[in-house]
Structures are given as structure tokens and as C-alpha cells.
Design a protein around this nucleic acid. Structure first.
Lengths: 189, 189
DNA sequence: CGTCTATTTGAATGTACTCAAAAGCGGTGG
DNA sequence: CCACCGCTTTTGAGTACATTCAAATAGACG
């Protein structure tokens, strides 16, 4: 049950058995169903979530009511509206479930305590933010320099197998094209 | 000469006169001319730059040799390829000058020492990374949900007055449109 | 099984592009 | 200081890529 998140920590920091036990004792768990909303725009993002099973998406709803997928978060990804979470401000983004999910999470307060208690976690989440920064930077570069077809191939490379699990319309939204055009793109491979 | 950078630090951390004197003693200065390259793709980004005067741009060159502007950095912005700098890996991006510039900078080693000597700076640069993260997130949201015209207006709001200082082709590249189309857009305001 | 939503397909449209030429602007040297 | 050269911007015309709209098909869920 906790092996995935412990393996995830181990990517960037080394924890003793005691440290592992401590962080595990702080984790809360929840299960959510497909299409359920985890974070709604305007609410404060109170938790940082680790996706243990399933897949989340983060998206923005524009004035016309159209949804735009920023990011998909399948197993082993972390989900948070970082500006809302760290600033305790209303969230700009929504987060919802594309599949039934099992999530582990930490509240802001608990995470702050964890930082105090063990600076390794501050390092871990700092690296996580930096990785997110790099990911977004790459995404902007893609949107500037790649065609829709190339961005689709990049999506498949970045999220192997995910296209089989989620609706085409969500992939189209992520790629900034219409579902109709994505359908035609996939014909021409 | 140092008032701009000290005011910039003061946005996020409070420094004593001694602390200010210490960081100032570590800063190096350089002047570069318009079109000169500060960081070339493939080199390791060895410094983090504060733009004291002038304007830099960060851009990617694709396989066809086309340049795509990721970010403009006028006075009071920091410039760095963060993946290259923090991982001491070859840079993916180029940084060059759009105007004659005066830059202050710190090397990776000096910055690490500064972190050790005074954790306030770790906090400062952590907030800086987070702000960069938010900026990019907003940029992706714009590219997903706004038209070229709206993105142009967003650019003018984010960089007041900058459109008068830099070439249209650089703004067009930033907006992911052609200079020809930007010219037509500006007619129709 | 039936309903609702998602995907595919076709046709027409429009947005942004390329190509080409002219005009404007800036820097440099005579 | 002016003339020239090179680069940028503007303008026009034709084109292509991606869109919208609509209808048919397929698939998911209760």
C-alpha cells in the first residue's frame, strides 16, 4: 500500500526505516470515483496528493465554459495547485479524476511540520517543484516549435499507454486541438 | 548600482546591512552588447544573472533553425537555464541580449556557499523558482485557451512598454505566430 | 436494452500561413 | 551629414491547416 510512495521518495532522498514509518504515519488516504472533483477553482488547495492508483487531470475552465487540460497525473505523480497550496489562496485550476483513484495526501500544516522535523522532505518537494518547472518549460517549447502531430507523438512518449485509458477529447484538449482533428490525425499515422 | 538587486531581494526576504554587504561582495558584474550571447545551447549554465539594465531573451532553436522565444527578461528579472544550472548539465536554451545590458551574477559554487552561509537566500531562490513555475503555468494556460489576439494583449499587460523596445519578430515568436500575422493583428486593434 | 456521450466522417468555412514585393528604419562609412 | 546597405515591417494574393457544423456510427454506463 505504501510501497509506491516510498519508492517515489527514494528517487530523490534516502530515508531510514524510522523516517519512512514517520511519514507513513502522517499520510491520509482517500478513494475517489471517476469524474469526481478533487479540487475546485476558487477553493483553497489544502492538500498535496500522491496518485497511488488511477489518473487525475488538472484543467482550467475559460469564460466560454471550455475546459483545457494542463496536466495528466497517473500513478506515481503528485497533484497540487502549487500557487493555491503554498499561498493558501483560491485555486485557479480544477483537479478531477479520469479514472477511479486511490490517493494519499498531506495537508499544508502537516507538510510544514514535516519540513521542520526532517529537512530531507523540504529537499524532496523542492526537487519536485523544479521538475514541474522543467516539465512546463518543455511543454511551452513544444507548443512553440512543434506541429499538432508532433505534440501528439510527444504526448504518447511522455505518457506511455495513457491514450488507451482516457478519452480522446481530453488528449485533444491537452494538445490544444479539437477532438475532431485529433481523430483525423490518428488516421494518418 | 546595487539598489535594484537589493530591492529585489527585499521583495521576499529581509536582509540586515551586514547581510546586504555580504551578498554584494559576492556579486560579479558584466556588460554585454545587443545580440551578444550570454548562454549557448549545449554549454553548462554556470551563472545566475540579474538584469540590472537592458533586456535578455531565452529561446530555443529547433531542427529547422527557427528560434522560439520562451521568455523575455527586462530589468529586475533573473535569467538562468535552471535545469542546466542546478544539474550542471548542457543547456537546452540560449540566452542573448535584445539591448545593451548590465548584468550582475553569481556562480553555482558561490550560490551554494551563500545558501550554507545564509539560508534566507535558499528561501529567496526557492520562491523565485516557484514564481517561475506559476509564470509558465499561466503561459501554458494562455496558449491553450486564448486566441493570438488575446495572447498579444496579455503580453502587453505582462511586459508594459516592452513592445516599444524590442523587434516585432521577437514578440511574434513569443506568441507563436508569424511576424506577418502580428503586423496584421496590430492593425486591427 | 436503452440512453447518453464520444468518436468518426464529410463538407464548408475561416484563421493563420507562405511567398513575394514594397516600404520603412537603423546603422555605418564615405 | 547624407547615402547606402541590410534587416524589419507592411501589404497583397493565394494556400493550407485546423476549425465548425451536422449527421452517422460506436461505445459506455446504468
Amino acid at each position: 500500500m505504501y510501497q509506491k510512495i516510498l519508492a517515489n521518495f527514494a528517487l530523490h532522498i534516502n530515508l531510514s526505516t524510522e523516517e519512512e514509518a514517520h511519514v507513513v504515519s502522517l499520510l491520509q488516504e482517500t478513494r475517489i470515483r471517476k469524474n469526481q472533483i478533487v479540487l475546485r477553482e476558487g477553493e483553497v488547495c489544502k492538500h498535496i496528493y500522491f496518485v497511488s492508483e488511477g489518473c487525475l487531470r488538472m484543467y482550467h475552465t475559460d469564460k466560454q465554459g471550455n475546459e483545457h487540460n494542463m496536466l495528466f497525473m497517473p500513478e506515481n505523480w503528485w497533484a497540487v495547485d502549487i500557487a493555491s497550496f503554498s499561498g493558501e489562496k483560491p485555486a485557479f485550476y480544477n483537479i478531477s479524476a479520469l479514472e477511479n483513484c486511490r490517493l494519499l495526501y498531506l495537508s499544508y500544516r502537516v507538510l510544514e511540520d514535516l519540513y521542520m522535523h526532517n529537512p530531507k522532505f523540504e529537499r524532496f518537494f523542492r526537487i519536485l517543484t523544479q521538475n514541474g518547472f522543467n516539465l512546463y518549460q518543455h511543454r511551452i517549447t513544444s507548443s512553440l516549435s512543434l506541429t499538432a502531430r508532433e505534440r501528439y507523438l510527444d504526448f504518447r512518449w511522455r505518457y506511455p499507454g495513457l491514450e488507451l485509458r482516457i478519452a480522446q477529447k481530453h488528449i485533444a484538449s491537452y494538445l490544444a486541438i479539437t477532438p475532431v482533428f485529433l481523430s483525423r490525425l490518428r488516421q494518418g499515422l
